[in-house]
Simulated scan of single mutants.
Amino acid sequence: MARHTIYEVAAAAGVSIATVSRVLSKPDVVSPATRERVMSAVEALNYVPTGAARSLAARTNEAFGLVLYELRGPYYAELLSGFEAAAAAREASVVVTLTKNRTHVDQAVRRLAGRVDALAVQAGADVAPVTLEALRRKIPVVMIAGGDDADSFSTENLVSARDLTGHLIDVHGRSSLLFVGNPALAPDIEGRHRGFVEAHLERGLTPRPPVPCQAIESEGAGIAHAMLAGELGADALVCANDELALAIMKGLHGGPIEVPGEVSVTGWDDMMAARYIAPGLTTVRQPVRELGRLVADRIGQLLAGHASSEPARRLPTTVVLRQSCGCP
């Protein structure tokens, strides 16, 4: 397939190539109407800046791009650590783009594609499918925590969430469980919620709707406050990650709602604090550093011309039982 040029984009949008360049590099300095015309032409032509098209053949950049929603929290630290170590082993640097709070996510990702040899993109980073499809025609793109082909890697979510929820129901007799987290925010959280739902349905129970929130400390503190105020009731909280769970436990500590006496609390990630808090946090351990390493290794294989017909790789996770669910 012929590669379209910046001149064709400019002609299609009725602007100069300088304007196209400004839209791609500094979109905020261009009027919304002009920006929309240029980006429509970019998407219609599947245009990617020239550097990205050169990189696959010439490897002139010697860099892997990593597109993440944010870098806050231990999950991202572990993911980046594994990814960077594997890239360094191949003598490649890592260029990171974060999409949280960005107004023009797809433009930023297209610019990044012009500076690197390949991209790893987190499924929850809000990159449009049409942009990903266009980029795949130019450089290797590997998906993290989403996708269903050979160039997609994730950790297992549904089975462990189903087992953990079943444990709360069968072993600890919990009957009013809540899933804390927003399934619409990311495929991995959606998978955990599906496991929560399946555990209920398998037992002939009707799951309660989730408590939609971001998986961050301040949201967990707010949920603890709502429980103490009598605005939210449950005898078990299955949280989307450890950060939420630990914040809830801290907020409830010393109050009338005891963990695990009145309410079981579980998390996801098995961050270091989960092992040392009292009571210890029941959670799910996932190999995030290994996930990052495998993604970078796959990029290296693709750049070397090694295609794969294998299905998406899903790494196993492990339920870790501690005292916060009621276990001794």
Score class of each variant (00 low, 15 high):
residue 124 G to E: 04
residue 135 L to N: 01
residue 141 V to N: 06
residue 123 A to E: 02
residue 142 V to A: 10
residue 145 A to E: 15
residue 124 G to Y: 00
residue 127 V to L: 03
residue 134 A to F: 03
residue 139 I to D: 00
residue 128 A to G: 09
residue 129 P to D: 05
residue 121 V to T: 11
residue 138 K to D: 14
residue 121 V to A: 05
residue 110 R to F: 13
residue 131 T to Y: 05
residue 132 L to K: 07
residue 112 L to F: 13
residue 140 P to Y: 07
residue 113 A to H: 09
residue 118 A to P: 02
residue 136 R to N: 02
residue 122 Q to P: 03
residue 136 R to M: 06
residue 133 E to P: 05
residue 118 A to H: 10
residue 143 M to Y: 01
residue 128 A to K: 09
residue 134 A to R: 06
residue 135 L to M: 11
residue 138 K to L: 12
residue 116 V to Q: 12
residue 134 A to M: 06
residue 130 V to C: 08
residue 133 E to Q: 11
residue 118 A to S: 12
residue 110 R to N: 10
residue 115 R to N: 07
residue 122 Q to C: 11
residue 132 L to H: 04
residue 144 I to M: 15
residue 130 V to A: 14
residue 134 A to I: 01
residue 127 V to A: 04
residue 113 A to S: 12
residue 113 A to I: 07
residue 146 G to K: 08
residue 118 A to N: 09
residue 113 A to T: 06
residue 132 L to P: 09
residue 140 P to V: 01
residue 123 A to R: 00
residue 145 A to D: 15
residue 133 E to Y: 09
residue 141 V to D: 07
residue 127 V to C: 07
residue 122 Q to G: 14
residue 122 Q to F: 05
residue 115 R to S: 09
residue 127 V to Y: 00
residue 125 A to D: 06
residue 131 T to I: 10
residue 119 L to R: 01
residue 136 R to H: 04
residue 135 L to A: 02
residue 138 K to E: 13
residue 130 V to Q: 15
residue 125 A to P: 03
residue 137 R to K: 15
residue 138 K to C: 14
residue 110 R to Q: 12
residue 127 V to G: 05
residue 144 I to N: 13
residue 137 R to L: 15
residue 133 E to G: 12
residue 131 T to C: 12
residue 117 D to E: 13
residue 114 G to S: 14
residue 120 A to M: 12
residue 135 L to F: 04
residue 132 L to G: 10
residue 132 L to S: 07
residue 146 G to M: 10
residue 109 V to F: 04
residue 146 G to V: 10
residue 113 A to Q: 05
residue 143 M to N: 04
residue 130 V to D: 13
residue 112 L to A: 12
residue 146 G to E: 05
residue 130 V to H: 11
residue 120 A to K: 06
residue 110 R to K: 11
residue 123 A to Q: 03
residue 139 I to P: 00
residue 112 L to K: 10
residue 135 L to D: 00
residue 136 R to W: 07
residue 116 V to W: 13
residue 131 T to A: 09
residue 129 P to M: 02
residue 138 K to N: 13
residue 110 R to T: 10
residue 145 A to V: 03
residue 140 P to T: 01
residue 141 V to R: 07
residue 120 A to Y: 00
residue 113 A to N: 06
residue 128 A to S: 15
residue 132 L to C: 11
residue 109 V to G: 00
residue 124 G to S: 11
residue 111 R to L: 13
residue 130 V to S: 15
residue 112 L to N: 10
residue 140 P to L: 03
residue 146 G to T: 09
residue 124 G to T: 00
residue 121 V to W: 00
